[in-house]
Computed example of a mutant assay.
Amino acid sequence: MSITIREIQPHDNAAMAVIIKTSLEEFGLNIPGTAYFDESTNHLYDAFQIKGSKYYVAIENNEVIGGVGIYPSNGLPADTVELVKMYLAPASRGKGLGKTLMQKCITLAGELGYHHIYLESMPELAAAVTAYEKLGFKLLDKPVGDTGHYSCSIWMLYQIKP
């Protein structure tokens, strides 16, 4: 079985919305101030049509099994992009796919001229936070920008190597 990573297509919207929402439900995070209630969660393809953004999906056996994107969220410095909506189906976790997806976003962010990648998370997603730290993301004391995810209490920043 091989996994293909490609840019999101309109027909991927429903599958990614299910992965995001069921993942948040799994951790009891289907609460306001999270991606669960973002309008864009149901329309990822459309949301990622703006300049400086891109969303990747991972496909196995013609089925969407996860995704992640970068997005120039409101209020971020011009040289910073946000790593957003990083979710994998439960059976696809713990196999290095998340790392592969994040590295693809880091490479793209550098190619697009960004110097930093910002992300927000929650203590309930400890495995993800550990993965971010292993990639080189550093904890911040407060949020950056205006993402609308006021329920997030973990903020991290990655410095892209020049």
Results as ranks from 00 to 15, higher is better:
Met156Gly: 00
Glu60Thr: 01
Ile70Leu: 11
Glu7Gly: 09
Ala14Met: 13
Arg6Trp: 00
Gly94Thr: 03
Thr107His: 13
Ala15Tyr: 12
Glu26Asp: 13
Leu125Val: 03
Leu119Val: 12
Asp146Phe: 13
Gly110Gln: 12
Asp46Arg: 08
Ile20Thr: 08
Lys85Gly: 01
Thr22Asp: 10
Met16Pro: 06
Ile65Val: 14
Met102Gly: 00
Leu76Glu: 05
His149Gln: 04
Tyr114Cys: 06
Ser151Phe: 03
Gly52Cys: 09
Tyr87Gln: 00
Thr22Leu: 02
Glu63Thr: 06
Glu63Cys: 05
Glu120Arg: 00
Glu25Trp: 07
Ile160Lys: 11
Pro90Gln: 09
Glu133Met: 11
Ser40Pro: 01
Ser121Tyr: 03
Ile106Trp: 02
Val129Gly: 07
Met1His: 14
Trp155Arg: 00
Ala126Arg: 06
Ile65Pro: 04
Arg93Met: 06
Pro162Trp: 13
Lys54His: 11
Glu133Lys: 14
Pro90Cys: 08
Asn62Gln: 14
Val129Leu: 10
Glu82Met: 10
Ala91Tyr: 14
Glu124Ser: 07
Ala131Ser: 15
Thr147Trp: 06
Glu120Gln: 10
His115Pro: 02
Asp79Thr: 07
Arg6His: 00
Thr22Asn: 04
Gly145His: 02
Ala78Gln: 14
Phe27Ala: 04
Tyr150Ala: 11
His115Asp: 12
Thr41Leu: 00
Arg93Tyr: 07
Leu97Pro: 02
Met1Gln: 14
Asp46Ser: 10
Tyr150Asp: 12
Gly66Tyr: 12
Lys51Glu: 15
Ala109His: 09
Val68Lys: 07
Pro10Gln: 12
Cys105Asn: 07
Val68Ala: 15
Tyr55Met: 11
Ile3Thr: 13
Tyr150Glu: 10
Asp146Tyr: 15
Ser73Pro: 04
Met1Pro: 13
Leu112Thr: 11
Val64Ile: 13
Leu119His: 10
Met86Thr: 13
Ala47Phe: 02
Thr34Phe: 03
Ile5Tyr: 04
Thr130Ser: 05
Lys85Ile: 01
Gly67Phe: 08
Ser151Cys: 04
Glu39Trp: 12
Leu101Met: 07
Ile31His: 02
Gly113Asp: 07
Gly33Glu: 06
Cys152Lys: 01
Lys51Asn: 14
Val68Pro: 05
Tyr71His: 14
Asn42Ile: 08
Lys99Val: 10
Lys54Ser: 10
Tyr150Phe: 15
Met156Asn: 01
Pro32Ala: 05
Lys54Leu: 11
Thr107Gly: 08
Ser2Leu: 15
Lys161Cys: 15
Ile8Gly: 01
Leu112Tyr: 13
Tyr118His: 02
His149Pro: 00
Glu82Lys: 06
Ser153Asn: 10
Lys138Trp: 00
Gly113Asn: 05
Leu157Pro: 03
Met1Trp: 09
Phe37Pro: 01
Pro32Asp: 04
Leu139Thr: 14
Thr80Leu: 03
Gly96Tyr: 06
Leu108Trp: 11
Lys21Trp: 00
Pro143His: 10
Ala35Thr: 06
Ile50Leu: 15
Pro77His: 09
His11Met: 12
Lys142Tyr: 11
Gly94Arg: 02
Met156Lys: 03
Glu111Arg: 15
Ala14Gly: 12
Gly33Trp: 03
